[in-house]
Write a protein that binds this DNA or RNA. Structure first.
Length: 592
RNA sequence: GGCCCCGUGGUGUAGCCUGGCCUAACACGCCACCCUGUCAAGGUGGAGAUCGUCGGUUCGAAUCCGAUCGGGGUCGCCA
């Protein structure tokens, strides 16, 4: 039966006179009592069907019974439309199908929201009836482009000689990193598998195995709270390469992403190579390690300019070893006091700043409640450092360096978005390099790896390991796209002595390291090639490529903010019998 | 766990700040009838919401207050 099927959206003037059969859903219906029109929709588009009671009474009667979203089979002859009836907005607008045989293959209840329109619908409803939401044009388009993008990635990786390898989904729990999703073992009661947060260890073992160039379109699971760009399960382009340095990894990723980007016909062009920026420069200039470089509004250091100022808040912060930074907001002199002290101050407070200081630079001079605390020379220095001109405002935060960076960085992003300071179509990819190897954990005060403990150190910094570990730079790198972290990678440690010293710096005992990562360390004793790699979050690339602001728009069956899949109702309680078989007992009965 | 926003027929919104004219409005959808060139078809008529839930204030609550539930965003978290 389907051998004679013609795609609705593919019918053209050249098909006129021919007899075809189409299958699809009723997208719209225009019933004139006599003559009836149905726009029939399938994956390829839609086609106008004409039902004439005079020439095909049976088909017309069937059409009269149909409602939106009914599934039909319709056969008839393609006719050109009269010139005055051509619909230029439709790909198939020059033709129509005069139906003489029509069969209703499935009736449909009135859908809970309009399938044939793009309008906003409450998120919960969309997820509950995801199969209907997926029928709508936006997600149809997004999922097809997702498939093309991933196909493009595979084509590119294959073309560069990478081997696609599937790594296990049931793996050993890893002590560090994100919270694991656990799977109880039926055969070994009391033991658990974890679902992979990433195939990290396996891909490094693939390098030991001599596979040389590994990649995978890898599913990853992390049991952490959700965000607009974060789902508990997501997909990565996971890559690992032997005998390489940073530039080799960069080139491979640039090639894969840019060619897939073109194949999927994502917005704007991507320029390769992607620009590079050190972590230090990103923090200094933008306050964040994932700068949105589509607009200026950079942070400027004012610590020296205000060191001796009469403004107590600044002076005290500097005395305590803190810093003062500011951004010049073009046109900011027009902003009201309420706007700055309300909305903008909220933004910096949320990131830990105690307040937001500001100065308007107007034709009459520097103004605001705090202007009187600064000398003319100091005001001049502030203007010089920030580049603020007449009509601008300078927005400043004084605090510990980390708080200043985070709060002004957030303020910068807020202003960029709110005041539309950038071209929405623009695509800014960049590499962030030279990350610090370690950071101080805020809660425990312990040193922790910023990337992971197998990240190679910068050769120049090895000797700082024991003396000043926080200054040690690693050979880790990120890709940032329009202010969003797309993925990260590193050149790995393959020398046992260096790995040993990193573990020691982290306070991981030899015995503990053996227990946690023994298989990897042992593998490295059998001839490990120097290697490095990368993992790129595919959904985040898709979001930017399609101009979507939420990750759910590029995933077929996403979860809500409570990590529930509301259509099927996962997660859900299980039978006692199922628990018993796994050797499990709940501390509390599940809520009913 | 903290903070912010949202919740009104099937869908999307208005009304809420400033309580009473709300017997809750509009568009789409739905149902019936009319209609042979529409394509967001048109016309006529109709059904459908006690305003998320509970409690309070008040003569009177969609509207004010409190609690709670649900959804979204965000900070923490995400090696």
């Amino acid at each position: 039966m389907t051998t004679e099927r013609t795609a609705c959206g593919a019918v053209r003037l050249g098909d006129a006179g021919g007899r075809i059969t189409v299958y699809g859903w009723v997208d719209r219906r225009r019933d004139h009592g006599g003559l009836t029109f149905i726009d029939l929709r399938d994956r390829s588009g839609s086609l106008q069907l004409v039902f004439n009671p005079a020439t095909a009474p049976e088909a017309h009667a069937a059409a009269h019974q149909t409602r939106l979203e009914y599934v039909l089979r319709a056969a008839g002859v393609v006719r050109p439309r009269e010139p005055e009836n051509v619909n230029p907005r439709l790909d198939t607008g020059e033709v129509e199908l005069h139906v003489d045989a029509c069969e209703v293959l499935a009736a449909a209840r009135t859908p809970p929201f309009a399938v044939n329109e793009e309008g906003e619908v409450e998120e919960r409803l969309r997820l509950q009836y995801r199969y209907l939401d997926l029928r709508r044009p936006r997600l149809q388009r997004n999922l097809r482009r997702r498939a093309r993008f991933i196909a493009g990635l595979r084509r590119a990786m294959d073309g560069m000689g990478f081997v696609e390898i599937e790594t296990p989904m049931l793996i050993r729990a890893t002590p560090e990193g994100a919270r694991d999703y656990l799977v109880p073992s039926r055969i070994s009661h009391g033991s658990f598998y974890a679902l992979p947060q990433s195939p990290q260890l396996y891909k490094q073992l693939c390098m030991v195995a001599g596979l040389d160039r590994y990649y995978q379109i890898a599913r990853c699971m992390r049991d952490e709270d959700l965000r607009a760009d974060r789902q508990p399960e997501f997909t990565q382009l996971d890559v690992e390469m032997s005998f390489v340095e940073e530039e080799d990894v960069f080139a491979a990723l640039e090639q894969a992403i840019s060619s897939a980007w073109r194949e999927a016909e994502f917005r704007s062009g991507i320029v390769t190579p992607f620009p590079r920026m050190t972590w230090h420069a990103a923090m200094e200039r933008y306050g964040v390690d994932k700068p949105d470089t589509r607009f200026g509004l950079e942070l400027h250091d004012l610590t020296e300019a205000v060191r001796g100022s009469g403004f107590g808040v600044f002076a005290k912060a500097v005395q305590a070893g803190g810093v003062v930074k500011g951004i010049a907001l073009p046109g900011g002199a027009e902003m009201s006091r309420g706007e700055i002290e309300g909305e903008l101050t909220e933004v910096v407070r949320a990131l830990g700043a105690k307040g937001l200081a500001y100065l308007w630079r107007r034709a009459e001079g520097w103004q605001s409640g705090i202007a009187k605390f600064f000398s003319d020379a100091e005001l001049e220095a502030i203007g010089g450092a920030t580049g603020a001109g007449v009509g601008d405002a300078v927005l400043m935060v004084a605090d510990r360096a980390a708080v200043v960076a985070a709060s002004l960085g957030a303020l910068r992003n807020h202003l960029g978005r709110k005041r539309s300071l950038y071209d929405r179509e623009r695509i800014d990819m960049l590499w962030i390099t030279d990350f610090p190897m370690f950071e101080r954990d805020q809660q425990t005060g312990q040193l922790a790896p910023l990337h992971h403990p197998f990240t190679m150190l910068h050769a120049d910094d090895v000797d700082l390991l024991e003396t000043d570990p926080l200054r040690v730079r690693s050979r880790a790198y990120d890709i940032v796209l329009n202010g969003r972290e797309i993925g990260s990678g590193s050149i790995r440690i393959t020398r046992p002595d260096v790995q040993e010293r990193v573990f020691q710096t982290l306070g991981i005992e030899r015995e503990e390291a053996r227990r946690k990562f023994g298989f990897l360390l042992e593998a490295f004793e059998y001839g490990v090639p120097p290697h490095g790699g990368f993992a790129a979050g595919i959904e985040r690339l898709l979001m930017e490529g399609m101009g979507e602001e939420n990750i759910r728009e590029v995933i077929a069956f996403p979860k809500n903010q409570q990590a529930q899949e509301v259509m099927t109702g996962a997660p859900a309680p299980v039978d006692d019998a199922q628990l018993r078989e796994l050797g499990l007992k709940l501390l509390q009965p599940p809520p009913t």
